[in-house]
Amino acid sequence: MAMTLQCDIVSAETQIYSGLVELLVATGIEGELGVCHGHAALLTRLIPGPIRLVEPTGEEHVYYASGGFLEVQGDVVTVLADTAVRADDIDEAAAETARQNAEEALANQQGEIDYGLASAQLAEATAQLSALRKLKNRAGRG
């Protein structure tokens, strides 16, 4: 039997994923981290970025979380995302536009733009695009 752990991804709006996984890769505040069976109890903050799951069947799923918390306790990994969506559902064009807008806003700063807000938007849009790219790469390989 494969070494698996129970994975739950919930956001404030809805339950997104619940099931057994072999591996979970998320974007923590101190870098990407992978969680497998037998991982030590861990609590970390997530930054906007993709969450990749590998099911026991070898099937992969990519989700996108805009931040939140990740908890590992025993053989259960819980992701409390602020908002999370399936990567397939991200509108690539919209994410790209959002990224460009945010970049422009940062480039021509004229005082009235909220720097913090713009850079947060840029980070989020970039993270969404990276989740999408991951999804596409995988499709390309498969």
């Binding site: 923590g28 505040i29 981290l33 109890a41 861990l42 609590l43 970390t44 903050r45 918390f69």
Partner: peptide, 17 residues
């Protein structure tokens, strides 16, 4: 007796959580 690994440090993380 057990404790989590915290990333970043426990104080900051627990405050937010």
């Amino acid at each position: 007796h057990w404790d989590y690994l915290y990333e970043p440090d426990a104080r900051e993380l627990l405050d937010a959580l």
